Simulated assay, not measured.
Amino acid sequence: MPQSRWTLMLVPHDNERVRSFQVSGKSIRAALSAVLMGVLLLGTFAIAFVVKQSKHVQNASLRAENAALASEVDQIREQMEALDASIAALTEKDEQLRVVAGLPEIDPDVRRVGVGGPGSNGTSAALARLNPRVNRKVETAGQDVNALLRRAALLRTSMDEALTTIERNRERMASTPTILPANGHLSSLFSGTRYHPVLRISRPHKGIDIAARVGEPILAAARGRVVFAGNKSNGYGNMVEIDHGYGYVTRYAHASRLHVRSGQTVDRGTRIADVGATGLTSGPHLHYEVEQNGRQVDPLNFVIGDALP
């Protein structure tokens, strides 16, 4: 079969002669293939260039983001250092509070309460592959945050314990009979046996006697609740009995006049009665007793420097 041929004619617009060329169909197909191949190669190169430029821009953006992230992590670390200094200062105050409260010192190793190694979550692993330097900063900051949180939690618990103990001690002190309840001189001390001036026999003297003029104020030796205010038939005459809590009970006998009633709450220094000579007594004075956990004890063991409010 004869090969197909094509004739190409070039017709100029001037008077020059017409030129004609004959080419085979195979040559035309080869030329078209070459053109298509050239276009394909050019397109491929163009796409590769665009992708490369895009990756370059993306990498530049990632580098900028990583730099910004690293800068933020550095700023966070600086703030954490300031927080660490604040916690250290509060720790010193906490140690002082524990001394005041009478609590044992916390071991320094417990104070440090370190945390374990870095985490291994997916985000950290991905960041480690993308930017190991920034990843190390983030991991270190995370560990420091955990340590600060644990130190702060321990500090809060310790301070709560110290403040609670101090408050409890303050309440106990307010309820401890630490003053002489009347202004006068001691005429008789606490004793296992004493000669009674009226009965003229020897028997225990369960308190102290403070000689004073009739009408001299009798003050509550500590905060508490009045559980009795009236006349006792056992020789105490007009008497006030106060329950202070914490095992303390005080009694004030031979009063001439009472200023409180049963159920009333009083503070240290509250005027509860006046000195008198009611009951079994040879003269005006205050008979004052202190009971601790159900056992009568010497009131002078609690008095601070013969204090009066």
Score class of each variant (00 low, 15 high):
residue 102 G to Q: 05
residue 46 A to I: 02
residue 59 N to M: 05
residue 42 L to E: 00
residue 72 E to G: 12
residue 64 A to F: 03
residue 82 A to W: 08
residue 79 Q to E: 04
residue 101 A to R: 00
residue 61 S to P: 00
residue 89 A to I: 08
residue 67 A to T: 14
residue 57 V to C: 03
residue 105 E to A: 15
residue 45 F to N: 12
residue 90 L to Y: 04
residue 45 F to H: 05
residue 59 N to V: 12
residue 67 A to G: 07
residue 50 V to D: 04
residue 103 L to S: 05
residue 89 A to E: 08
residue 52 K to V: 09
residue 95 E to Q: 14
residue 47 I to R: 13
residue 59 N to F: 02
residue 82 A to N: 14
residue 69 L to M: 10
residue 104 P to V: 11
residue 54 S to D: 07
residue 106 I to A: 00
residue 41 L to E: 01
residue 53 Q to Y: 12
residue 46 A to N: 01
residue 84 D to F: 02
residue 89 A to P: 00
residue 59 N to Y: 01
residue 48 A to M: 03
residue 82 A to M: 13
residue 73 V to W: 03
residue 98 R to C: 08
residue 101 A to T: 02
residue 80 M to S: 03
residue 75 Q to Y: 05
residue 47 I to V: 13
residue 51 V to S: 09
residue 93 K to V: 07
residue 88 A to C: 09
residue 76 I to P: 01
residue 49 F to W: 14
residue 39 V to L: 07
residue 85 A to M: 05
residue 101 A to C: 08
residue 49 F to K: 09
residue 97 L to K: 03
residue 61 S to M: 14
residue 74 D to P: 01
residue 47 I to Q: 10
residue 49 F to V: 12
residue 84 D to G: 08
residue 51 V to D: 06
residue 85 A to V: 11
residue 57 V to W: 06
residue 79 Q to V: 04
residue 67 A to N: 13
residue 106 I to L: 11
residue 96 Q to I: 05
residue 68 A to V: 14
residue 82 A to V: 14
residue 92 E to V: 08
residue 100 V to N: 11
residue 92 E to G: 03
residue 99 V to Y: 04
residue 88 A to H: 11
residue 65 E to K: 13
residue 67 A to E: 06
residue 48 A to K: 03
residue 62 L to V: 14
residue 60 A to V: 06
residue 77 R to Y: 00
residue 75 Q to H: 15
residue 53 Q to R: 15
residue 53 Q to P: 03
residue 96 Q to H: 13
residue 94 D to R: 14
residue 75 Q to N: 14
residue 68 A to Q: 11
residue 52 K to N: 10
residue 103 L to C: 02
residue 80 M to V: 00
residue 65 E to D: 04
residue 76 I to T: 03
residue 96 Q to V: 10
residue 72 E to Q: 13
residue 41 L to Q: 09
residue 62 L to F: 06
residue 78 E to K: 15
residue 94 D to C: 15
residue 69 L to P: 09
residue 88 A to Q: 11
residue 100 V to G: 05
residue 85 A to T: 13
residue 67 A to C: 02
residue 46 A to C: 04
residue 53 Q to M: 11
residue 52 K to T: 07
residue 67 A to P: 01
residue 67 A to M: 07
residue 53 Q to N: 04
residue 63 R to T: 12
residue 56 H to Y: 05
residue 84 D to I: 00
residue 58 Q to P: 01
residue 61 S to L: 13
residue 72 E to M: 12
residue 54 S to Q: 01
residue 82 A to D: 06
residue 69 L to N: 10
residue 105 E to I: 13
residue 56 H to F: 02
residue 75 Q to K: 15
residue 39 V to P: 05
residue 52 K to F: 12
residue 72 E to F: 09
